[in-house]
Design a protein around this nucleic acid. Structure first.
Lengths: 355, 355
DNA sequence: CTGAAAGCGCTTACAG
DNA sequence: CTGAAAGCGCTTACAG
């Protein structure tokens, strides 16, 4: 048996079968030019019979928009990004676009390589999800990519981080990280806590910087000095929260009555370690998270945390990317910031006033 | 200000700048033909200076492999699929491929539409992740798509479901759903449980059918009659598990001493509802999950569940898709089934033997 | 090792 | 409304 030809059906095959020219088939396909009903149905039938699909490469090459939006997220297996991606997809469908997700796996090298591959594919917009580093090299690299995409008629969208520097051709859709942290820390302070640790995150990361700034502002507004020893940097991972509690206990006693965790994953680790050590949450230790991931209601006690509008972030990112110049668009040309809010559950203890 | 030209840099621009022919630039780009060192570096410099990236459409059109693997998952925001996708990405990177994820949002219509779009893009392989329906219409549609992709030199890979029917040009990478369920139900039976409910899932879905079959086989092997009233169908959602416990309690008492949940999400709902109702897990009710999602260690008590090798499933899917004909490949041309195993934690109570 | 030319599968002015 | 032709940006035999 000879090897199969491995040749896909082309527009010429369809044209031959329908007895028309390739140009006419193309007109039926795009639907943007009048075709007589009789020929139209003949062509449609030929397409069905041959199970023909247009070659998107060829189509894109001859000048048509690819109608594709790319989403870059650090890790698909991470709920935060998955939810934002979900919002992006919903809106992409509503706008008739195909959306593709790629993981950077947290590697800036890979992120750049992926953006290059997406440039090659003439993607309509590239959406970068999540916080980022603020070091000069990365910022200037992002700047160059933004300009290259702009030059080629595409658009770089930053979703969940501020613009790295002013004047760049980027679309920004962010959420109020600092405000959420301010409200959350304020809640702990109002509940009577004075020794509040902040654990997780890395300075220089936009998300850490904003959340930690909100924490410090709340302390300052309540006249509490921030003890530097109570801020502990670390990865945004469950294991880190777990380990930190063990470290504190191994060193003697807890240095705080409440822990403000950089995110819910860390908070889950803190709660698990507390239970294993015989500490009661919130009686012996109050725990606060950030992100309001699905997990927050399944840990015990349920986690008080800051809600981030994940899906709305994604939907807005697509809308802004596609309609940034629409006269109808309220927030035309501006960067958009969505609100965050505190969700009260059971992981924070209230001390009596003045106690 | 006139509109920017919006024209991307092409190989001709690079050629002109380097003072060579486009063919030579192409040779530098692909690297598959000798080029003199001097010219090579001149071209490289021109590429850098112009910030040039090849047009993937044009490249694909002239016959080169797209080096792209597409992953179709029901929902990015769902941990199970995210983890499998993660494994796929790892292996895709190792194989030098670009992997793209698309969500079907659980809509078979959309799944087919996406596969069509991927056919258009000459994707090297299309990986379908997760269980599926077994109705005739869907099966024959998948069959047609498999054949179309095969004809075009691509490959359909089913990851986490069996082949819908024999003789199809598909690559199958599945996990032992039935065996895992058999072991899990056997564990409950050995622990002394006799009234074991099975909740969640839908008949006709490959995943449900396999898990429920394992459950029934274990009951039969232990000489326990399966009470049909103890099997309750429903969505694979946390809310369903929660609701089912409330329904049982509202109707009087629990009809069982243990609940085998179709997946961990349902189990999380059952545990939450039990706690709200003042029932102790596992003393008053034993709960068993399936999938071993990250969540399983954060619910309280930690969930006894069946581990699914999510990432390994993904890695294997890519390996099989790309090397299915390699003489070196051990499982060449065969469908692969990965093992599952029970993970014992704290949500199952052991009754005294004979009690 | 290098260049001129053909061709990949489409779309879209350009004629009719 | 329809067809013949040019062109999109590459790659790769084909000559040299």
């Amino acid at each position: 048996m000879p090897a199969a030809p491995r040749r896909a059906t082309t527009i010429r095959d369809v044209a031959a079968r329908a007895g028309v020219s390739p140009a006419t088939v193309s007109r039926v396909l795009t639907g943007n030019r009048p075709v007589s009903p009789a020929i139209h149905s003949k062509v449609q039938r030929a397409i069905k019979e041959l199970d023909y699909v247009v070659n998107a490469q060829a189509r894109a090459l001859s000048g048509t928009n690819t109608q594709t939006i790319a989403i870059l997220i650090p890790d698909v297996a991470w709920s935060f990004h998955g939810q934002v991606a979900h919002g992006i997809e919903q809106q992409a469908i509503a706008e008739g676009r195909l959306s593709l997700i790629c993981s950077t796996l947290g590697d800036p090298q890979r992120e750049v390589a992926l953006i290059e591959m997406l440039r090659q594919r003439s993607t309509e917009a590239v959406i970068l999800v999540g916080g980022a580093d603020t070091n000069d090299e990365y910022v200037s690299r992002i700047g160059r990519l933004a300009e290259a995409l702009d030059r080629e008629g595409s658009r770089l969208v930053l979703c969940g981080r501020p613009a790295p520097k002013p004047g760049l051709p980027v679309t920004v859709v962010d959420y109020d990280n600092e405000g959420g942290a301010y409200a959350a820390a304020g809640h702990l302070l109002s509940a009577g806590h004075r020794r509040i640790a902040f654990i997780g995150g890395t300075p220089g990361n936009t998300t850490f910087d904003a959340r930690h700034a909100g924490y410090r502002r709340a302390l300052a507004d309540h006249g509490v000095d921030a003890d530097p020893a109570l801020t502990v940097h670390g990865p945004a991972a469950r294991g880190f929260g777990h380990e930190q509690v063990r470290t504190w206990l191994a060193a003697g006693d807890l240095p705080c009555t409440a822990v403000f965790c950089f995110d819910d994953l860390i908070a889950a680790g803190v709660i698990a370690a507390a239970r294993e050590s015989g500490l009661k949450v919130p009686d012996d230790l109050s725990v606060l998270g950030y992100d309001d991931e699905p997990l927050a209601i399944d840990v015990h006690p349920a986690l008080t945390t800051v809600h981030v509008p994940h899906e709305e972030l994604g939907r807005t990112a697509v809308r802004q990317a596609l309609h940034r110049d629409d006269p109808m668009n309220q927030s035309r040309g501006q960067s958009v910031t969505l609100g965050t809010h505190l969700v009260l559950r059971q992981s924070v203890r209230t001390y009596r006033r003045g106690a």
